[in-house]
Design a binder for these strands. Structure first.
Lengths: 345, 345
DNA sequence: AAAGTATTTTTACATGCGTTAAACTTAGAG
DNA sequence: CTCTAAGTTTAACGCATGTAAAAATACTTT
């Protein structure tokens, strides 16, 4: 199993008796080389240990076959599912995905963007940080690469493509559902780590007004924008429940992780949120976090179509990537959420 | 804000009046250039838009400043936490992490390894797939790079460094705890997606025998080795509970995600697992999944020191990386778990 | 001001492969 | 058996930077 190691194409050329340009063409696309040469090269490669140098190949091609992806936070199954979907879509299109996580730090996000530029990735997909991040990063990427934003949208960028869930539709739909089956819901906000936080909040308010109810938003005092969503949800509701407030309300949480914290607070106060009892406590979330079917009670929520979002982002990127220099208009694709009625509301 | 774009160092050299070799030295380490030149270059860079070409720089240096990391599965907060810990450790040591996910597919894992080799990363850290994967991949990486395995250990590799939790200690400790506070536990196995599955199972059996109890392992019939742990835990216990079995047992789950499914099955059967009642149902897990404090009841478990494992893996890698060609012995670092007593057991 | 040292510039070669043009083989058609 | 087209080899240049040696310059020190 100790095949001789070969480091350059030149050596390989000497070792198997095929010229270097032919090898070069072979590695780019075996179809560009005659049947007999392909056989000969293939047999030769079995006898030695050689892989083309990644940098040298990439440096000279016009296309690198890589697309860069930045996500803001790793420890959240929503983003990992999104990432998985992107990786699968990109892989099946023959691209290599380079992932960077900005760890909720604008400086890291910026550095990741620079890395992508210096690696001349063929395109980039970014799930942006929230208000903190400098929008210039996205504009810069957008100006220099095929570029798509995803998941969370800075509305002020009128030139950048976006793929994500239609929060007006999704949040509106579950708000309406809650109004119909129980009382008009209170909205438990999430820490404002990205643009979605506000967007969902506003979608809730708009729908409530449309239905003629008074919107009530809680959980916004703590402006500490960290990703400990469960702890946030639990803390906010614990405070209310301790004062005997909200114990018979419908509570719409800005996302499922907040809702999981909310369920916990309820349990600690001996409350049993549920869809069945008329007028009792109801808790609902947003996203369809993979754990929703396993909470007690199982969490009613709105599913974001993660697979579709990832696939659509890659599709759109590839489209831009192939249509060189075509001055196109901004594409904004908003994907509907799906109501998942379980037990909690 | 539309600075002129400059693509090569040569151009940059002309633009700001400093020779190319000096610029080259500057970009590698500003300290290698005189104070005055640094100032001059810095001012020049503010006026233009230039980033050194990633490939060209990497191609000629002996060191690329990159380390490759492969994890088997993305949608699991254990791995994302591990990854985060590695990224932080590597970043603070000045390295760039390139992450690849093998998506439980040995072929993808192998391709990722080849990518790392062709990119001449300075070192690689891999959390391996289970029995399915070809151990040759790890041997190959180990032979050609500073290399460390992590999380799950193929014992047959006697030449590869490993960092992970000491499952004999961790599983033993919680087994002992369960025996002490309740009845001797039954072990609810996890799908055998990696070597840890068996290792924990064996550690449980050994400890039970040591304590003079009869080990009982359930959940091994379904050999479908997928990552739907919660569904697995729920299905297995649902079967037992339906027959009235195990409803007053202590159940040690192979990991927290299985335990979350177990809690769900219990709730569906109207059972309330808990530490308080003598002789009642108890459920415990392993890993300290971030959601453990938020389940109902909060899950008693063993915490793996994820931060420490990631840091240690990077430390060990850097150590090997700096000590060139030193023929060293295999290093195996097993880190203790910590008992987290909550409500469920 | 002269001598000595620290930096920088010049010059030239190296990295591993993409790419092109011209010369050369080979196989199939007539 | 000659002609032709397809494919291959040879030869040479390019990519954007690293790196090393020698020459030139700037800065200190006495």
């Amino acid at each position: 199993m100790t095949k001789p190691q070969i480091h350059t194409m030149e050596e390989l050329s000497a070792a198997i008796g095929v010229s270097r340009p032919t090898l070069s063409r072979y590695f780019q696309d075996p179809a560009k080389v005659s049947r007999s040469s392909v056989e000969r090269i293939r047999r030769g490669l079995e006898k030695v240990d050689y892989t083309p140098n990644f940098f040298a190949t990439r440096m000279n091609r016009k296309t690198t076959g890589m697309i860069g992806v930045i996500i803001p936070y790793l420890n959240d199954l929503f983003f990992t599912r999104l990432l998985e979907s992107i990786e699968r879509a990109a892989m099946s299109a023959g691209y290599t995905v380079i992932t960077q996580c900005s760890h909720s730090d604008p400086k890291i996000e910026m550095r990741a963007a620079e890395t992508f530029l210096s690696m001349s990735v063929d395109g980039a997909i970014v799930a942006p940080l929230g208000n903190h991040s400098d929008l210039g990063v996205y504009e810069r990427l957008n100006a220099r690469l095929p570029f798509v934003l995803m998941d969370s949208r800075p509305k002020s960028l009128t030139d950048v493509d976006f793929i994500g869930t239609d929060h007006v539709q999704s949040t509106g739909m579950i708000t309406e559902y809650l109004c119909r089956v129980g009382g008009p819901p209170v909205f438990l906000a999430m820490p404002r780590v990205n643009f979605n936080a506000r967007e969902r909040e506003n979608a809730y308010i708009a729908k409530m007004q449309e239905l003629g109810f008074e919107p009530v938003v809680i959980g916004t005092e703590e402006i500490r924008p960290d990703w400990h969503f469960e702890a946030h949800g639990r803390a906010v509701l614990d405070q209310h429940f301790s004062k005997g407030q909200l114990i018979e309300s419908s509570i719409l949480c800005a996302n499922d992780r907040v809702a999981i914290g909310a369920l916990r607070a309820a349990a600690q106060h001996g409350l049993e949120p549920g869809a069945r009892r008329r007028g009792g406590l109801r808790i609902a979330g947003h996203d369809d976090y993979p754990l929703c079917p396993f909470t007690t009670p199982a969490l009613t929520t709105i599913a974001q179509d993660v697979t579709e979002i990832g696939q659509a982002a890659v599709d759109r990127l590839l489209e831009k990537l192939r249509a060189e220099n075509t001055t196109e208009n901004q594409v904004i694709m908003l994907i509907d959420g799906t109501l998942k009625i379980r037990e909690s509301a």
